[in-house]
Design a protein around this nucleic acid. Sequence first.
DNA 1: ATACTTGTTGAAGCACGCTTTAAGTCAAGG
DNA 2: CCTTGACTTAAAGCGTGCTTCAACAAGTAT
Lengths: 135, 135
Amino acid sequence: MERSLSIGEVARSAGVRPSALRYYERVGVLPSPERASGRRRYGGEVLHEVLRRLAVVRVAQQAGFTISEIRTLLDGFSEDTPPSERWRVLAQAKLPEVEALVERALGMKNLLERGLRCECLSMDDCDLIGKGALD
Amino acid sequence: MERSLSIGEVARSAGVRPSALRYYERVGVLPSPERASGRRRYGGEVLHEVLRRLAVVRVAQQAGFTISEIRTLLDGFSEDTPPSERWRVLAQAKLPEVEALVERALGMKNLLERGLRCECLSMDDCDLIGKGALD
DNA sequence: ATACTTGTTGAAGCACGCTTTAAGTCAAGG
DNA sequence: CCTTGACTTAAAGCGTGCTTCAACAAGTAT
């Protein structure tokens, strides 16, 4: 008999909540493990696969990918496509988006700081506000 | 008789949708104008005030403030507090948040680019994924 | 036997800033 | 008179990634 882990054990060892594992399974990011009396049992190859996928999910999320993009990363290519190429395809599509996010964030920071140096006594006079002068 | 604008006219001149104006009014960012046969009429001082506030809303949103923070910016200070000080108080609280956003975004960009240069043939070997090696 | 823990499911909830829908009102134009 | 168009309200919907709830089942400890 093969030793297998419960959902709680997998969750703990992966640092996520059981509800997240169930969610990932539901949306097709994780495989559906066997049930013993209705309960998920993660063992052998499935356990390995689940942990491998969770590792990918973590990095991909850090990189800004959505769940649906992660699903593509994991299952949207022909099996012989190496991970490096899968990533390249998706990352190239994602980069402009993330670069735009960087720009937006820097713009916010800039605006906040300009405001810190502002001395305006009335909103109407403020050059930050003045009719779109801040583009 | 004072000429006054309908919600559609105000919306067009401010570059927002009527639904946004109603929403802002509901959440207390805009004053509630008089109604003529049930319809909002924006005229005189109210019109001026609405346009002034919409200008503030625009900048504040660009700076990353939420609606609730904008409400504070507009109405959360004693009346004699100048705009520059109101902004300073809120911007100082917001800055760390926005700086964290910048860092997250730069981290994403970095990760995406590192992945573009990756040559890994298997996910398991990839140093981007390898057991948290990418913190 | 009985309580406690951990699990199961489907459905609903949260944050956020609006937008959209449903059902109805009103004034002007043909 | 009747259609058209812009407006009114309250309530629900959207996108995203889970979490939480309700109601129930099963294995373990006392």
